[in-house]
């Protein structure tokens, strides 16, 4: 058999009539089309985020092609795929950080609790408040540990010192950082180790009381022990929050994901529960990717 490179495979997949609907239409997660390669457990009663016919163009490049997915509540959803496949772009459309950049064209809908966040009438600040973002490397704001956590609540109008103190303590605790920093809340946040900084950023995100946590390869800059701590936090936090993580380490996805979305070159190839996707992938491309044939 002739070895195919992934690009060829994709072309083939597109050509084969069996999967054309998958790539061409809005079929991936539509319940009525569930006879396709969509897994039975995946279409959920009430998805937290639903993406419908999403197309994104950066400059002239078509970086997200007709994406249709649902993100469940109170679970960890991992978006996997080779680098450059549009994972991060997809994540950024969720809290509209994308339209900060220039020459971006976004088509389609991202529904948060049924409300389209790309509707011009929607209050962006309100949307962003509902989602905490954890970026690739920790980004502490240029202020003290305390002020980093209090930043969000203050912006949203909480002024009373007592209340702020209580919030700071609460969220530092939920990020597992309280014991380490409780004696030096007024030192600049950039004095913390990089792993601590990332947990600080997590706590800061939690402090605006979001419903969803977005993580953009949130552990890739950290040492294994710090990564493990963050992963454990995610597992704990999913009881209260919906978590969406972009990751390119398959092992991390296997460790913590409940649901998996596999993307390739701007398209969602396959989505489903972690169990089914890892153990019984429906697509040739997914199988190749999981077996490390390309990355």
């Amino acid at each position: 058999m002739r070895l195919l490179n992934p690009r060829d495979m994709l072309v083939r997949a597109k050509k084969s009539p069996k999967v054309r609907t998958l790539f061409g239409g809005a079929a991936v997660l539509e319940p009525e089309n569930s006879h396709l390669h969509v897994q039975k457990d995946m279409p959920m009663e009430k998805p937290h985020i639903s993406v419908r016919n999403l197309n994104v163009y950066l400059q002239q490049n078509h970086v997200l092609k007709n994406v249709n997915i649902d993100i469940p509540s109170n679970a960890i959803t991992c978006i996997i795929g080779p680098s450059g496949c549009g994972k991060t772009t997809l994540l950024k459309t969720f809290n509209r950080l994308l339209d900060q950049s220039l020459e971006v064209k976004i088509d389609g809908e991202v529904l948060l609790d049924g409300e389209n966040i790309h509707d011009p009438k929607v209050d962006i600040m309100h949307i962003r408040k509902k989602m905490g973002l954890l970026s690739q490397r920790p980004v502490p704001l240029p202020m003290s540990i305390f002020d980093n956590i209090a930043y969000g609540p203050r912006i949203h109008g909480i002024r009373r010192k007592k209340k702020l103190e209580r919030l700071v303590q609460k969220y530092l605790k939920s990020a597992g950082l309280w014991e380490e920093v409780k004696d030096r809340l007024n030192t600049p946040a950039n004095r913390l180790s990089i792993g601590q900084q990332q947990r600080l950023c997590l706590a800061r995100g939690l402090a605006v009381e979001p419903e969803i946590i977005l993580g953009d390869e949130a552990t890739s800059a950290l040492d294994p022990i710090s990564s493990k701590k963050i992963e454990e936090l995610f597992l704990k936090l999913k009881e209260e929050y919906s978590i969406v993580l972009v990751t390119h380490t398959l092992r991390q996805a296997k460790r913590i994901a409940d649901y998996i979305i596999f993307m390739y070159m701007g398209e969602v190839v396959e989505a489903g529960t972690a169990d089914q996707l890892f153990n019984n992938p429906q697509q040739e491309l997914t199988r190749e990717y999981l077996s490390g044939y390309f990355s």
């Binding site: 950080l97 900060q100 962003r128 905490g132 970026s135 704001l141 995100g205």
Partner: peptide, 13 residues
């Protein structure tokens, strides 16, 4: 860095 701005914006600022 843009990330710093994004961090603040993503908190709803």
């Amino acid at each position: 860095p843009k990330e710093l701005r994004d961090a603040s914006l993503s908190l709803g600022a």
